[in-house]
């Protein structure tokens, strides 16, 4: 695993919908090294008294181009929206252990809540088998890139809590019947990214039915490289029958659902 610190040039930066933004940068060292599910640690320029970098899943990495897709949710992401074409920003990456290659013989199922979809896009691109992708959100504006995933060959099933797009309900309200109506029989392997409630709900099903499942956690981070021990979460030490800390930035952000101590996840 190689990581780099480099100044990336902004090539394109646009608001997509509902507070979501797409930032495309030229990042010749990091972009070619990115694996599905990895992240970059971004030093948001002009953030004044804030001193830490902010982690973002890599949405796309092609050639020397690297894209992140983010939602304006706080001071850091708000400040990021002001970044213009031609400006540079410092990146450290690619960081973390991402999604493994889909296992041969299993049927890949992507499950995303909101912009969790961003962490799954490279996975969807590079997976030799195209399966089903479940996208959930509060409202239609939270459902992104359906056409892109469909163009890659995935069947996309959408849920929104307010029913403004796709099925009304949570992502599990669509996942459960799909599994019951033949999905489970296809030996699913789940790749999951979204809020912790979604991770927890999907992981509970995976553990109950013994589906292989990988979840990408979104913990607060400090250094992003494993030194500060801010982003730790409890994982099972199966050998000792105890728990131990794992760093979301280093051993994660992707974990096997069976490794996480879910009772400790808020």
């Amino acid at each position: 695993m190689s990581m780099y610190q480099e100044n990336a040039e902004v090539l394109e930066h646009e608001a997509i919908q509902g507070g979501y933004n797409l930032l495309i940068m030229r990042s010749p060292n990091i972009a070619p090294a990115v694996k599905p599910g990895q992240f970059v640690h971004v030093l948001v320029p002009h953030l004044g008294e804030s001193i830490l970098r902010r982690p973002f899943s890599v949405f796309r990495a092609e050639g020397d181009r690297l894209a992140i897709l983010y939602k304006d949710v706080g001071r850091g992401t708000r400040t990021l929206t002001y970044l213009r074409h031609g400006e540079t920003l410092s990146l450290v990456g690619p960081l973390g252990r991402g999604f493994p290659d889909p296992a041969p013989g299993l049927f890949p199922v992507l499950v995303a809540g909101g912009y969790g979809m961003a962490a799954l896009h490279i996975c969807a691109q590079r997976s030799p088998v195209k399966g089903v992708a479940f996208f959930g959100g509060r409202t239609a504006a939270d459902i992104l890139c359906v056409k892109e995933f469909e163009a890659l060959g995935w069947t996309v099933i959408v849920t929104t809590e307010d029913g403004s797009l796709g099925h009304q309900g949570r992502v599990t309200d669509a996942l459960d019947p799909w599994m019951a109506q033949g999905g489970a029989a296809r030996k699913p392997e789940l790749f999951v990214c979204g809020p912790s409630g979604l991770l927890k709900a999907v992981a509970a099903r995976a553990l109950e039915h013994r589906w292989r499942a990988w979840v990408s956690v979104d913990n607060n981070m400090g250094c992003g490289v494993g030194a500060c021990l801010t982003c730790v979460l409890k994982v099972h030490d199966h050998e000792k029958g105890d728990w131990t800390w794992a760093r979301a930035c280093r051993e994660g952000p992707v974990f096997a659902a069976s490794d996480i101590v879910w009772e400790a996840v808020g």
Binding site: S50, I51, L52, N220, G222, V232, W245
Partner: peptide
Amino acid sequence: KGNPTPRTAEVASGLLNAI
């Protein structure tokens, strides 16, 4: 094993930690 989480908080021009 160290402390429970959250272990750090970003504050004005600094970082508060109890790792």
